[in-house]
Design a protein around this nucleic acid. Structure first.
Lengths: 192, 192
DNA sequence: GTGCTTTCTTAACATACATCAATGTAAGGC
DNA sequence: GCCTTACATTGATGTATGTTAAGAAAGCAC
């Protein structure tokens, strides 16, 4: 199974060769079509996804039916609703595929077992959590302290490739503004 | 050392009795006065704080000199700038004491060592990280999708005790609005 | 190709929130 | 006690962003 995930475990997570087959055996692969729903509100999230190819998205829908995008997961990212996965509580969020996506699927038990088997995996798992916290903290800081324009500039600086793959209204949703506002922000920027 | 922290490790973290003395030996205690600065911008964060009594705060200051509050830590909470502590990068945030505070101080090495010694500690440490992520995700969701009024109501519902201990302008700063706006939001609520 | 849907832009207008300035009030220093 | 400082409120006004509606451009189905 010389997949992207396998290579990721080897090259990036630095899982020792002897442990690799053990881990690889425990996961399954899934082909998703654009638009497929992986998690819905009220459901308890049982899976974690590793994106080999494609793009996933985590979002909420408010009382007025508006979507608010919490997170994107392109290639080599993990995606899950951790709050629901780890604590077993019903999710208030949705996960779906924004493109046809090849993903590796596993559950919390896999993470726990992998951490038992491979210290390297355990270390990397903590790294992922810490990094996630750092990134969210930065985002919160921008949301409470920066203008829409600044948030937009930060977004395209951080995820230039992503910005080319998703419609603008999704960027707007991620930034916490309307598509119309983002359009104006962009016009303001080009005129500078 | 029958301190709050000791009891916390025993009762909440469920560290085994035999491990407790080992862990307790490695930490030091600090008395802080209101206003004391524990971490400043540009500095690499070396410490994690456990608040036994008092209140700490993590915040940023933007180019216009405005403070934006990322997090509060009252009794029995851990406080640190994880991005800086874990990754060793210079902090863009500040930490200070909002009240006279009794805190236990330790470093990342303590966390690693404690995780080696006590599986219960390791488990609890991951619990803390997961919980932090869940809480930040919820906050991001409110920041991008809810009005100031709704965010305020969520805040006082979640931290009713905190709201009594800090000035209103700090709540406003945490919510990402001005003190004047919060004052108006509150007036609107009392008139309902 | 034709039609249908989605996305993006633009404009006019509405609203939430920010800014500036003044006042009131309460708390702490001494 | 008085003075100072920090905090909260209020009003007038400004600005960023939301709302509604329309049209153009691009993508997709058939």
């Amino acid at each position: 199974m010389e997949s992207t995930f396998y290579n990721y475990l080897k090259k990036k997570v630095l899982v020792k060769s002897e442990h690799l087959p053990l881990l690889a055996r425990e996961v399954s692969k899934k082909m998703l079509s654009k638009g497929d729903l992986l998690l819905t509100e009220g459901q308890v999230c049982k899976n974690m996804f590793f994106v080999e190819q494609g793009l996933l998205r985590l979002y909420s829908i408010d009382e007025e039916g508006r979507e608010h995008i919490i997170q994107f997961a392109p290639e080599n990212w993990f995606m899950s609703e951790r709050g629901s996965l780890y604590f077993g509580s019903p999710s208030v969020f949705f996960i779906d595929a924004l493109e046809d996506t090849k993903a590796v699927v596993f559950d919390q038990q896999f993470v726990d077992r992998a951490s038992e088997i491979s210290p390297e995996y355990r270390t990397y798992n903590e790294y992922i959590l810490q990094n996630h916290i750092r990134q969210m903290q930065k985002r919160i800081n921008l949301l409470i302290g920066a203008t829409a324009e600044k948030r937009y500039l930060e977004f395209i600086k951080l995820y230039p490739d992503l910005a080319m793959r998703i419609p603008q209204w999704m960027i707007a949703s991620y930034l916490g503004i309307t598509p119309e506002s983002l359009s104006r922000v962009r016009r303001g920027l080009t005129q500078k």
